[in-house]
């Protein structure tokens, strides 16, 4: 098994309209899409929201990674289909898949295009305490490291005959221990190491900080944000007026 899909959340420096936006504008983007996805549970509206992500992804030059992140969801998708069709209906299951895909895409767009350094800065500008902002961006920075470590753990266990696929739900849960325990222990060890490294560089010794980089919310960020908020308002309006909307919006699968 490969953890390649985690790369779908890894920032890469690129020049694009999305990359050049302020991180806060992109946070608004992620939230707008998440809220919109939560507003509806019918196929058609969710499909429209989902499709509206595609131009963003293409102009943001992150199509490849985005497709990977969607593909990484395939396991979850299967799970949702099975559970929902068993207990509810196939239409609902498909709608829920679109919902998950929209929410994951929204955050994958955010993480793919926000430089972890800018992330800390934007959190500070939103009046979060520096320690919090720093920990957050640090956690962010360690995602690929942990993915790498997880891959090494999977390799090591498979080399002693461990099999990823086991039959039965209980067995599958039990089967996670050989991977999770080493992963947690290694992460705790690393956390201590990082803490020591930070302290030995006098982290937190001064209350007042200066910053090497600055971020600025410019005109294009305002335009983009206002555009997003407008979209959100339209969606909320549709939601409220749902009963008077045309039939095709509430279309369901015949089964």
């Amino acid at each position: 098994m490969s953890l390649e899909f985690l790369n779908a959340f890894k920032f890469m420096k690129k020049e694009s309209f999305l990359h050049n936006l302020d991180p806060r504008a992109k946070l608004v983007l992620a939230l707008t899409y998440t809220i919109s996805a939560l507003l509806f549970n019918q196929i058609i509206p969710l499909l429209i929201i989902f499709l509206s992500l595609i131009p963003l992804v293409i102009f943001g030059k992150i199509l490849k990674q985005w497709i990977k992140s969607i593909r990484g969801l395939s396991f979850l998708v299967l799970f949702i289909i099975i559970l929902n069709t068993l207990f509810l209906s196939l239409s609902f299951a498909i709608a829920m898949i679109f919902r998950i895909c929209i929410m994951v895409s929204a955050f994958s767009i955010f993480f793919l295009t926000v430089d972890p350094n800018d992330l800390a800065l934007s959190l500070i500008s939103m009046k979060f305490p520096y320690e919090f902002a720093f920990s957050f961006s640090l956690a962010f920075r360690f995602v690929p490291t942990i993915a790498n470590e997880a891959q090494n753990i999977i390799d090591a266990q498979q080399s002693r005959g461990y099999e990823m696929q086991k039959k039965g739900f209980i067995n599958q849960i039990k089967n996670l221990f050989p991977l999770l325990i080493p992963l947690i222990i290694c992460s705790i060890k690393r956390a201590f190491n990082v803490a020591e490294a930070l302290e030995s560089r006098a982290f937190g010794s001064k209350k007042e900080r200066s910053y090497y980089y600055t971020i600025k919310f410019s005109l294009k960020d305002w335009i983009f944000t206002i555009y997003l908020i407008l979209i959100l308002i339209i969606f909320i309006f549709i939601k409220i007026q749902f009963s008077v909307m045309p039939d095709w919006l509430v279309w369901r699968l015949p089964v």
Partner: peptide, 15 residues
């Protein structure tokens, strides 16, 4: 792996 035993560097990756 029955035939080929790979022993990686970091024991804490498997214990």
């Amino acid at each position: 792996s029955k035939n080929i035993g790979l022993i990686f560097q970091n024991p804490s990756h498997q214990l």
